[in-house]
Amino acid sequence: MTETSGAETDLEQLRRGTDLLKRGFAQMQKGGVIMDVVNPEQARIAEEAGAVAVMSLEAVPADIRKRGGVARMADPAEVEEIVEAVSIPVMGKARIGHTKEAQILEAVGVDMIDESEVLTPADDAYHIDKRDFTAPFVCGARNLGEALRRIHEGAAMIRTKGEAGTGDVNQAVYHQRTIKGAIRELEGMTHEEREAYAREISAPAELVHETAEMGRLPVVNFAAGGIATPADAALMMHHECDGIFVGSGIFGAENPEAMADAIVQAVNNWDDPEALAEISKNIGKGMKGDANVDLPEEEKLQGRGV
């Protein structure tokens, strides 16, 4: 018991909302699949399939794309229903730069906030100052400069932007390769070359040095944007992502239960082709999707929030 120990626990020394706790929460998601859900029933299906968390939103990105108009944070009452429906963490999306939506999501009790380009940006110049929050944030990035700027603002997790709602994994691959390629380049640079590189990509020099020394982003790095099949998820793990967000790919599929279950298993077995073959059999059709090459530039979401 504690009496036999040389010290006593002092309850007053408790601290909340530290970087260690925010980044630690993200680290607990590693090797997992985070699924987009729009209602409690979908959230329960995701939990049952082995999702590590759910992303609660009003409509999946593919539907947001089709519908057009302004995409905003979901109704807090609906987010609350999802929070109450499952035992796994619940995340919510706020518009880029929309500090108030983020505060509302934090007040509702979401475990992580996604400052997301899938919603219509509220601020063209600034992202949310995420250091002010107790809740951890995840942000999208297409390249190392975007990733390190978001981390500097307080993001505890980075995900590729990909091209959300397309079901085309092409852009997620491109963004992950771009980030990893830049880190490999950094590793071969001298101190002053890294300083110059930091200026070139408009990133804080200390984060550039930290990334170079670690040989990876200093926070958890997930894949997102266009992942639609178990093979897509495995491909992103092959590209050294720490885990996977699946948006429209689950509930836009013919058989969401089978797809959700298969993607969870594929992430654990990403380097075993025979297991992947078994996992990919008879799970129904994936979401139809739109090939990224056919998408007009003005319909792309990934350019939002640099």
Binding site: E8, T9, Q13, L14, R16, L21, P89, G109, D111, P136
Partner: peptide
């Protein structure tokens, strides 16, 4: 939930 997560020295 995550908002209640904490760190502290523990005997």
């Amino acid at each position: 939930r995550q908002a209640e997560s904490f760190e502290a020295p523990l005997a």
